[in-house]
């Protein structure tokens, strides 16, 4: 562990980090351009555009999380409580979604 730490503080490592940060920043710039570029593409339906847009956003977000927030070399503890958080966000969404639209009815039963 202490050995690890030493590595992460060495000037070479930091210089390399600095470079990686610029590269990832560049990728994010390009990805933003792509997001705007594809918005008017006809992918069949608007839902496809939404799905595609969200896909790019998710990729960008993962890059920010992994590289910028150095989650890549973070400790397991953080992963543990982040994964719980994600589970509960999904729970909040899916379960209230089911509260609005019941699979057995297949139509909106109680949005208003």
């Amino acid at each position: 562990m202490s050995h690890d730490h030493h590595d992460h503080d060495s000037p070479e490592y930091l210089k390399k980090q600095s470079k990686i940060i610029w590269i990832v920043g560049g990728i994010l710039f390009v990805a933003t351009g792509i997001t705007v570029g594809v918005m008017d593409l006809d992918l069949g339906s608007r839902s496809m555009n939404i799905a595609f847009g969200m896909l790019i956003a998710t990729i960008k977000a993962s890059l920010v999380m992994l590289i910028f927030m150095h989650l890549k070399n973070e400790r397991g503890l953080i992963y543990k409580f982040l994964s719980f958080t994600i589970v509960f966000v999904i729970g909040l969404f899916v379960l209230s979604y089911l509260g609005f639209i019941d699979p057995l009815h297949s139509n909106l039963i109680s949005t208003k």
Binding site: G91, L95, G99
Partner: peptide, 18 residues
């Protein structure tokens, strides 16, 4: 405790599955 909340809402007309 995070996945039981809608038992306060049985009367809101939720469907049978949920």
């Amino acid at each position: 405790s995070f996945i039981v909340w809608a038992h306060h809402m049985y009367m809101t007309g939720m469907g049978p599955v949920v």
